[in-house]
Design a protein around this nucleic acid. Structure first.
Length: 290
DNA sequence: CAAGTGCCTTTATC
DNA sequence: AGATAAAGGCACT
């Protein structure tokens, strides 16, 4: 697969795949290797050309959000100097449309872990419960199915480094394996309703739900608030909140649901329909700032 | 080098 | 309602 990219709409594959929204892509030389749709593949970007091996154009186009009109999105979210700097620094970072099941389990595992540890957990999980597939003489593993994880023992899941998250993964996998779950249907629901559905799964709170909505269900208004986003909001947008509230949450390590909802709603109200893009740029900006 | 801190938080309990 | 503690384990300081 080879695709000439529209020069008016920037793409930066490196930013997109390494910014912490997805955990199973690995860069070797100039190629990014990953497993999507049960298939190992590789991608690379050479200036304005995107090349893929063992992957379909239609899927990649959706996966990488190539239809998202970045100039239009930037025009909407670029409300101040902070956002302007973040956009300048990471222009071309796209919000992915990941596979929802994998995204859900990934973010249940991601709670209170750092990115390195999350990558390791998901690799171990795939290695133990996914299917091996060989690509360019290297072993890759598909992401485990709901059935596989539903039938796994808590102990075996925990051995992948999940710790107390093993129980949540197991219970969520069982719910989905037993009753099935239509993620496509969620894509068509409004943000609030889709979020309410996701919150039924054990291990899914407000933050995890927002991540799944943003990174796999196309809800670009979702504004996940993790420690880094809380930090950047307190650094750059403190004035938008009552002084007492700002002081209070600045000093704590975790947020209550009410506090979370206030920060997340600020993001949606202030940045608009593409608040999720603003979130990811700010997140990456805050994390890489010296 | 030990001990403490922090990590893309949720849940149980008060 | 709202605060607080507990829950892997590993990297980093």
């Amino acid at each position: 697969m080879r695709l000439k990219l529209d020069t008016d709409c920037p793409l930066n594959l490196d930013f997109t795949l390494c910014c912490g929204q997805t955990f199973r892509w690995d860069k070797q030389g100039e190629w990014w290797y990953g497993v999507v749709k049960g298939r190992a593949c590789k991608l690379r970007q050479v200036e304005n050309t995107l090349e893929g091996v063992n992957v379909e154009f239609g899927f990649i186009k959706e996966y990488l959000g190539l239809d998202d009109d970045l100039p239009k999105i930037f025009a909407q979210i670029n409300k101040d100097e902070n956002m302007d700097s973040a956009i300048k620094a990471f222009s071309g970072l796209k919000i992915l449309r990941q596979e929802p099941w994998e995204c859900l389990i990934s973010y249940i595992c991601a709670t209170y872990k750092n990115i390195l540890a999350i990558k390791r957990m998901l690799h171990e999980l795939s290695k133990k419960f996914g299917n091996k597939t060989v690509f360019e003489e290297r072993n890759f593993y598909t992401f485990p199915t709901a059935k596989k994880l539903a039938n796994a023992s808590i102990d075996d899941l925990a051995k992948c480094g999940l710790g107390y998250r093993a129980k949540y993964v197991s219970e969520t996998a069982k719910m989905i394996h037993r009753a099935g779950f239509d993620f496509e249907c969620l894509k068509r629901l409004p943000y609030d309703e889709a979020k309410r559905e996701l919150l039924h799964f054990p291990g899914v709170g407000l933050k995890v739900a927002d991540c799944v909505l943003l990174f796999s269900l196309g809800k670009t208004e979702a504004f996940p608030v993790d420690v880094w986003v809380k930090r950047v909001i307190m650094r750059c947008y403190k004035g938008h909140f009552p002084k007492e509230f700002a002081e209070k949450i600045s000093g704590k390590k975790s947020l209550t649901d009410v506090e979370y909802a206030k920060l997340s709603k600020f993001g949606r109200d202030y940045f608009g329909k593409y608040a999720g893009y603003a979130q990811e740029y700010l997140y990456h900006y805050e994390r890489t700032k010296t």
